[in-house]
Design a protein around this nucleic acid. Structure first.
Length: 305
DNA sequence: TGCGTTGTTTCACC
DNA sequence: CGGTGAAACAACGC
């Protein structure tokens, strides 16, 4: 499920493969992906050249000549497949459709064709993603309206001090606080589980109860999880089952499978209405914290050890 | 078949 | 008012 690492991977692909190319043709097979777009069609992009690929949180911003910017959000299941004239590919985002399969796929909804023959297919099996075309001058405001907090990773990344201040006034579970994009932008359900496992902190721990050392561990682990995700070009999770590469992901979508650290079976609970994976041994619930009834362990019915 | 799935928005409530 | 929890929303696979 596309989070910051998948979007950053796409940004890098666009920067490397698409910047400098002119749009020769655009096919939009599912116009509702543009439902909230200030400019209602992609036709103004015809003939324009991609100047730059930016990213803020999970939003991709593509700046074109003629003062146009296209914002893209992958939501649950967006995917870009860039196919060069020689047939080689770079794919980022959701693992469906199969990156090695035939394109356009039946879930391919938007296709860009560039002047040199390079093609970029946007596919989305859930159709939750969106495209918004607007003047570049408006794009910073449009992004600002999301109210994103500091980036979780990269040049302008949040500092430990900033994170400590934000977490200190929240009584909600630390996992829920970290998913709040106004606290820290870019962590999603997969990487937050990975970060808390590495930091050895139970997701239900109230954010404000974390010690300075624990906040430091959360900070380091969040950066690590996202960096590792970017290094791998995204986490390999298919049909709610993880296929770890180099031990990552270590917990997410691995219910019942052995913890990579201690061998105990990974548990699945519900935190803030989100499926949450953790190792009860490596991430013990602090004394005095009682899990809400809604967080009880889910019964076994899938993907056992 | 209804539930789970996600990031984001909205809303009722304290 | 702000923090919180929960629901809604988009569509589809199992």
């Amino acid at each position: 499920m596309p989070e910051l690492p998948e979007v950053e991977t796409m940004r890098r692909i666009a920067e490397r493969e698409l910047v400098g190319l002119a749009v020769r043709r655009v096919d939009v097979g599912l116009p509702k992906l543009l439902r909230d777009s200030p400019i209602p069609t992609l036709e103004p992009l015809l003939g324009e050249t991609l100047l730059r690929a930016r990213r803020r949180a999970k939003v991709l911003a593509l700046d074109f000549t003629n003062g146009l910017t296209l914002l893209v959000h992958f939501k649950l299941a967006g995917q870009f497949a860039v196919i060069r004239p020689d047939g080689t590919r770079s794919v980022a985002g959701h693992p469906v459709p199969d990156p090695a399969g035939h394109y356009p796929h039946k879930t391919t909804h938007i296709t860009f064709m560039f002047g040199d023959g390079t093609i970029a297919h946007y596919s989305d099996i859930r159709q939750f993603g969106w495209f918004r075309l607007m003047p570049t001058d408006d794009s910073d405001d449009a992004i600002a309206r999301f109210g994103f907090g500091p980036e979780a990773v990269g040049e302008n990344a949040v500092t430990v001090d900033e994170l400590a201040v934000k977490l200190a006034r929240r009584s909600i579970p630390v996992k829920t606080a970290l998913l709040d994009q106004t606290v820290l932008a870019g962590l999603g359900n997969i990487y937050v589980d990975e970060a808390l496992h590495r930091a050895r902190i139970h997701p239900l721990t109230p954010a404000k109860s974390l010690s300075r050392d624990e906040v430091g561990r959360v900070h380091e682990a969040s950066m690590w999880a996202l960096t590792e995700g970017i290094r791998q070009g995204g986490a390999k999770i298919l049909h709610h089952k993880a296929y770890p590469v180099d031990g990552f992901p270590a917990v997410h979508a691995r219910k019942g499978e052995p913890c990579m650290h201690c061998g105990c079976p990974i548990a699945k609970i519900r935190v803030g209405q989100r499926g949450t994976y953790l190792c009860d041994t490596c991430q013990p619930l602090p004394a005095g914290v009682t899990p809400p009834a809604a967080a009880v362990a889910e019964t076994d019915n899938e993907a056992g050890a």
